[in-house]
């Protein structure tokens, strides 16, 4: 059995997922705008709500360079309760 199915090359990944990434980023931007229209300009950045704090950390993780392509894992950990 092949343990690791072959991956697409980088161009193929972009061709297949670029519009989806664009759509999801716009969705996130629109949700943040929606929040600030209700809570006030700058509310997203200033909020101390734990959920927003986690969202900001996750967005930061998207942009952080990494030796491993493990952004999904790092973001899943950001949204996890601490382990005793």
């Amino acid at each position: 059995m092949d343990s690791h199915p072959s991956l697409m090359n980088g161009d193929q990944v972009l061709d297949r997922y670029f519009l989806e990434v664009r759509c999801k980023l716009l969705d996130i931007a629109a949700i943040i705008d929606r929040y600030e229209r209700s809570a006030g300009p700058g509310a997203w950045s200033d909020s101390t709500d734990r959920r927003i704090d986690r969202c900001r950390a996750a967005l930061q993780a998207l942009m952080d360079p990494s030796e491993q392509p493990n952004r999904a894992e790092r973001i899943a950990l950001i949204f996890s309760d601490p382990v005793e």
């Binding site: 092949d2 199915p5 991956l7 697409m8």
Partner: peptide, 14 residues
């Protein structure tokens, strides 16, 4: 999704 990424038929079956 896996098929479109180029997985072979046997890999899908596995």
């Amino acid at each position: 999704e896996c098929r479109m990424r180029g997985w072979g038929e046997q890999q899908l079956i596995e």
